[in-house]
């Protein structure tokens, strides 16, 4: 019995390793390409592992305004996350603690936003931003991203706040806390996992977004990372080690978050929010 279990485990591990290798091959390929010299990316036959590790790709990326793009993206993603959490928590507590007319319709509306084609929003938002005089500014992107994240953040946080028993807030208030104090000290910390999942969702959305950033922003210095990456792709020839080095660094924050917060990531994913 014991031996059978060990053998089964061994077979399963071999099968899964093969599958993981195939599926993660593009990821590994990006990683290894980024560590090759420019010459080594143009050899036939191609090498899998870099024959000689070279940091040229990363060094060149640094000369290409990459840090500026990185900073822009980070700034926009942080503001988007902060605003989504602030308003999301307020509305989430509101929804879970008080009954509203039409809250069911609201929930369905929120789910529909997750299915709504993004491409339908580009022209209307473009005109709106140009009317507001916000074209070619980071504010236009933050506003747009918040509009996307907010409905979903509210919905997700409402379900989390609903699991926090009202009694706990009440007993805190009997002990002399104000209503707001009870929310801040009791309700919000109890819903921490939900808040983490929501924060990841908002950050990743803002970090990865391409279409609006590509349409709204003109000035090179205001570009976000996804757009910046595209400028590294040459018209006629691309230095692939450089582009892959930039790609590795763009992926890094998201992958780090994923490794340390996998549980919340998967929770966000199964609720349909974190889109690939």
């Amino acid at each position: 019995m014991q031996r059978r279990r060990v053998r089964k485990s061994l077979v399963m591990n071999l099968v899964m390793l093969a599958i993981v290798f195939v599926i993660d091959f593009p990821f590994l390929w990006m990683l290894f390409t980024s560590l090759k010299g420019t010459g080594e990316t143009m050899t036939i036959p191609p090498t899998f592992l870099p024959a000689k590790v070279s940091w040229d790709g990363f060094r060149k990326v640094m000369d290409l305004n990459f840090l500026k793009y990185f900073a822009n993206s980070f700034y926009i993603a942080v503001i988007t996350t902060g605003a989504s959490l602030l308003f999301g928590i307020m509305a989430g507590i509101g929804f879970s603690r008080y009954k509203f007319r039409g809250s069911k319709g609201f929930k369905i509306g929120i789910l529909v936003t997750q299915l709504f084609p993004l491409i339908l929003l580009v022209s209307p938002y473009y005109l709106l931003m140009s009317k507001l005089g916000l074209l070619n500014s980071h504010a236009s992107l933050m506003l747009t991203y918040c509009a996307f994240t907010l409905p979903f953040c509210v919905w997700m946080l409402t379900t989390y706040f609903a699991t926090v028993p009202v009694d706990m807030e009440e007993s805190a208030m009997i002990d002399g806390s104000t209503k707001l104090g009870a929310y801040i000290r009791i309700t919000v910390p109890m819903a921490a996992p939900g808040i983490a999942a929501t924060a990841i969702f908002a950050f990743v959305l803002a970090w990865n977004e391409f279409v609006f950033a590509n349409t709204f922003i003109d000035t090179p210095n205001l570009r976000t990372l996804p757009i910046g990456l595209r400028t590294f792709m040459g018209q006629y020839s691309t230095e692939w080690n450089v582009l892959m080095a930039a790609s590795v660094m763009t992926t890094l924050p998201v992958v780090l978050m994923f490794i340390f917060l996998q549980k919340y990531f998967i929770r966000g994913m199964t609720s349909g929010s974190i889109k690939g």
Partner: peptide, 28 residues
């Protein structure tokens, strides 16, 4: 079987990669 948590995580990598990065890696 032992280690399936690891495999599940590893198989989520495509989903986690930013879409722009994924597209360029495939172009390459």
């Amino acid at each position: 079987f032992a280690g399936r948590g690891f495999y599940r995580g590893a198989l989520l990598i495509p989903w986690v990669m930013p879409s722009v990065v994924a597209a360029f890696t495939w172009v390459w």
